[in-house]
Simulated scan of single mutants.
Amino acid sequence: MSRLYLKNNSNIEHIKFSKTTQHAEFSNELRSKVREYFTTHNTHRYANANMVFKTIFMISLFLIPLIVLCLGLVSSTPMLFVMYMISGLGMTGIGMGVMHDALHGSYSTKTNINKWVGYSINLIGANASVWKIQHNVLHHTYTNIEDSDDDLNMPYFLRFSPNTKYYGIHKFQHIYVWFFYGLLTLIWVSIKDFIRIMRYHKLGFFKKRHEVKIELAKAVLLKVMYYGYSLIIPIIMLPIAPWVIVVAFLSMHFMTGLFISVVFQTAHIMTSNEFPNPDEHGMIDDDWSVHQLATTSNYAPKSRLLSWFIGGLNFQIEHHLLPNVCHVHYKKLSVIVSETALKYDIPYHSQRTFVSAISDHFRMLRSLGQVA
């Protein structure tokens, strides 16, 4: 896929990263040390037995409660909500700790295994092809670059970059943003794939008209399938008022959307992170690896439970520098990355806890809402 971005919704330009000698040395030494780590420990960069267990666990956590609901085995409202919430936890685990690695190609040496495990995203009504463009290409390549990183492409009432046009309503975004975070997965499995397919067609990723039609058809099919077994069949089968089932379903998505949003946003929309603009020639001042360190932050590096559940995404720096490495290795590799960054006097941003990361994210949102 070509390295392109949309500028002012009209002109497509190229973005390039500088290659200074010092930064090239950092990148080369880091890659060398990572290779040495895997050789010394006689292991590989892919998933291990623990990752396979997590895959089975998260998919089961998502599907089993929905199967119970589809079979009409629940008759009480409290148990209905419990089933949906458990399924929501599974959805979160699939999104952050299963399909994420697979669609990066870091789950297995075998392409087909990566592909089929990555298709677990389809279980939750999303399109794997669209996600790979949005995340692997646009977000990972152009992190925190306005008009290029699609994670910054938000409705006008949300301002996630100092380079985004300011509106007065942004003054309150640190208060109301949490509600919209909760809508993330619901919007995703409803309309966002369709919006992105058309946007990526304009960007040149789906170049041919038949490619667009195929992706749109896939999106429709996946969403009909998802809504069918997660909502419609339970409404038909359960002896509970349909509106109660809908509320429970929406509650599941709100919980899941809020948690996933916070996990990802506390890695990039932080007071310590940079939001660089390319110059008139499309050049970014930093080498790509250094750019990732400047625009990304870790948090809660000592929390094993959180790290396990969110697929190592608290080690976002390692993930961005080494996206082809499975997250089960991030904790140990973080020592190598931080020490190498220190050697070359390159900032390595990390928050001590998840709570402190959320607090810093809150401050950044408030700051972005005050500066015109």
Score class of each variant (00 low, 15 high):
residue 8 N to W: 12
residue 10 S to M: 15
residue 20 T to R: 13
residue 20 T to G: 14
residue 24 A to K: 15
residue 36 E to K: 15
residue 45 R to M: 09
residue 52 V to G: 04
residue 53 F to H: 05
residue 54 K to L: 07
residue 64 I to T: 05
residue 66 L to N: 15
residue 68 V to H: 06
residue 77 T to P: 09
residue 77 T to R: 13
residue 82 V to M: 06
residue 90 G to H: 02
residue 93 G to C: 04
residue 93 G to K: 02
residue 94 I to Q: 04
residue 97 G to L: 00
residue 98 V to E: 02
residue 104 H to L: 08
residue 108 S to T: 11
residue 114 N to E: 11
residue 115 K to R: 10
residue 117 V to H: 12
residue 120 S to N: 05
residue 124 I to P: 14
residue 126 A to L: 10
residue 134 Q to I: 09
residue 140 H to F: 08
residue 143 T to H: 08
residue 155 P to V: 10
residue 160 F to P: 03
residue 160 F to E: 05
residue 162 P to I: 08
residue 173 Q to G: 00
residue 174 H to T: 01
residue 178 W to T: 02
residue 181 Y to A: 00
residue 181 Y to H: 02
residue 189 V to K: 04
residue 194 F to Q: 11
residue 200 Y to F: 15
residue 203 L to I: 11
residue 208 K to W: 12
residue 222 L to K: 06
residue 226 Y to A: 06
residue 229 Y to T: 03
residue 236 I to C: 08
residue 238 L to D: 00
residue 252 M to C: 04
residue 256 T to G: 01
residue 264 F to I: 06
residue 265 Q to R: 08
residue 279 D to N: 14
residue 290 V to H: 06
residue 291 H to P: 03
residue 294 A to H: 15
residue 295 T to D: 03
residue 306 L to S: 06
residue 306 L to H: 07
residue 317 I to R: 01
residue 326 C to E: 08
residue 329 H to K: 10
residue 339 E to L: 14
residue 340 T to S: 09
residue 348 Y to C: 09
residue 351 Q to A: 09
residue 352 R to P: 11
residue 355 V to G: 00
residue 356 S to I: 15
residue 356 S to K: 14
residue 363 R to I: 03
residue 366 R to I: 04
residue 372 A to S: 15
residue 372 A to L: 15
